[in-house]
């Protein structure tokens, strides 16, 4: 049956419903728990096998030895494609994905994040 303007009912109904969009960034938006965002490195578990470096599709992670059984990781967030292959490849589970995705910076140098070998914390200042 031809009925021009059939969508009118849906339109009028939407007028009184809550909108489906949010006013980002005034209203925050999150990602679900399993989302592959920024990586986190636990220096205490790393043994320096460099399997993560071998499997990374974009050469985004570099593991450096800074002492006896102490390793630090430098992750370039610009090169990383957030595939989490390194998380799967690591035999000691030293890497994990966090759901953080708002990673834009005005300065390209700040995108290289270094996780120090002593604390495992991210040593780059976030502006």
């Amino acid at each position: 049956m031809i009925n021009p303007g059939k969508i009118a009912g849906l339109l009028l109904h939407s007028l009184f419903k809550k909108p489906a969009t949010i006013d980002y960034p005034a209203q925050p938006s999150g990602m679900p728990k399993g989302f592959r965002g920024k990586l986190k490195f636990n220096a205490k578990l790393c043994i320096g096998c460099k399997l993560c470096m071998r499997d990374c599709p974009s050469d985004a992670i570099i593991i450096r030895k800074v002492g006896e059984k102490k390793f630090e990781a430098e992750i370039d967030m610009a090169k990383c494609i957030y595939c989490a292959q390194c998380v799967d490849s690591c035999p000691k589970k030293a890497l994990e994905s966090t759901p953080e995705f708002e990673l834009a910076h005005l300065d390209r140098m700040k995108l290289k994040v270094v996780f120090s070998a002593d604390t495992g914390d991210d040593t780059t200042e976030k502006t």
Binding site: K33, F35, C83, S97
Partner: peptide, 21 residues
């Protein structure tokens, strides 16, 4: 708008909205 329902499911199941890996 309806597609967003599927994208949210994919994000929570596979870890990303596109390029699921």
């Amino acid at each position: 708008r309806d597609r967003e329902i599927v994208m949210d499911i994919l994000a929570s199941t596979t870890g990303n909205r596109v390029n699921y890996g």
